[in-house]
């Protein structure tokens, strides 16, 4: 393991306490809702936010937590990039090496090589104000890599970009992260960024880790409502009794056989809606009330209240046929084979 950390930041209205381990060459994404403590964790790693007693950071066997930011072997890509507006792209990238005592000519040569690597050789002389968002992001990445960090920290690296640029820059960033041999921690609230860029996700809520695993594991087995919403699943916690999971008053039949505390998850598209009770159905069936209806891509997402609250995705045609308005009583059903149960 390259990075071992326990990040502890205690404030009057907020407490962050999480353990983080990142191997050399590994990319870990800290994923969480706003206010979960992701950025605070990143700032603590960078040395920009003081840690409370109990916090420690060890990188390649050396303690970092007692060092100020300028003495840590880190590179940071900030959310708004924070390129120095009075310096050219080249001098921004050369800034770190210059601080490390590299002679000016050599630092500029190295910076030019890095800018070339991120495809910006032609923009070396440009001031940050003249760069597009995507170009600024790449200069920021080159600037962070120029100090040859052992730990690379990225704070919402794609949040400031428009959708089109984002797609392109995301794949470019993935490529550059793959070529970096130190540990990488990236903070994002976008599940797609996290899934594409990271080898492992660490989901944070209220200053603590609620789930971690590979993107695939987290997407298949969400353990909190936040993660379930991120990956687009209905999620319930209940007690498994063989072929079903008791969730409140409702027994949901599942294809897996389990006992004890368990989660059940199913996608909104697996939920079918009926105006009247369907006959002789072997499915999970429950009465629900329409809470709201919203457009969701090329389908319609229906919010259901009832014994369990759920999302159902239906076609616009089905919405018209069923005449679903908020407050209407419907029957909802899900096939057992479309559900997925796993131990809690």
């Amino acid at each position: 393991m390259s990075l071992h950390a326990r990040l502890v930041v205690t404030r009057p209205a907020f407490a962050l306490d999480l353990a983080l381990e990142v191997a050399a060459g590994e990319v870990v994404a800290l994923l969480g809702p706003n206010g979960a403590g992701k950025t605070t964790a990143l700032r603590a790693l960078a040395g920009l936010t003081a840690m409370s007693p109990g916090g420690r950071i060890t990188l390649d066997g050396h303690d970092l937590h007692h060092l100020p930011a300028d003495r840590r072997p880190i590179g940071v890509v900030f959310q708004d990039y924070l390129l120095f507006p009075h310096l050219s792209a080249l001098d921004n990238v050369a800034f770190g090496p210059r601080c490390q005592g590299v002679p000016k000519a050599e630092a500029r040569r190295a910076a030019a090589a890095l800018l070339d690597r991120v495809g910006l050789a032609g923009h070396a002389a440009a001031r940050p104000g003249r760069l597009s968002g995507g170009q600024a992001q790449r200069v920021a990445l080159a600037r962070a890599l120029a100090v040859r960090p052992r730990l690379l920290l990225l704070d919402e690296p794609l949040a400031a970009l428009d959708a089109h640029t984002r797609l392109e820059i995301r794949s470019g960033l993935r490529h550059h992260l793959a070529g970096f041999n130190g540990a990488t921690v990236l903070v994002t609230h976008d599940p797609l960024d996290a899934m594409v860029l990271a080898d492992r996700l660490v989901v944070i809520e209220h200053g603590a880790v609620v789930q971690q695993g590979t993107p695939g594991e987290v997407a298949r087995h969400p353990r909190t409502d936040y993660v379930a919403r991120l990956v687009g699943l209905n999620l319930y916690r209940g007690t498994a009794r063989g072929v079903g999971v008791q969730v409140g008053e409702l027994l949901l039949s599942t294809s897996e056989r389990l006992t004890g505390p368990a989660f059940v998850a199913f996608p909104p598209a697996a939920v079918a809606l009926y105006r009247s009770r369907p006959d002789g159905s072997p499915r999970n069936l429950w009465p629900a009330r329409v809470g709201g209806v919203e457009r969701h891509g090329d389908h319609v997402r229906v919010h259901l209240d009832g014994p369990i609250s759920a999302f159902a995705d239906i076609t616009p045609a089905a919405l018209a046929d069923l005449d679903l308005t908020p407050g209407r009583e419907v029957w909802a059903s899900v096939k057992a084979t479309e559900t997925h149960a796993y131990p809690a």
Partner: peptide, 25 residues
Amino acid sequence: QRYEEAAATLGASRWTVFRRVTLPM
């Protein structure tokens, strides 16, 4: 002040931050 923080993460001492980032800005 975040520019000063950015300079610090790049290894700039307090004096370097002041001279090369704060003062020009």
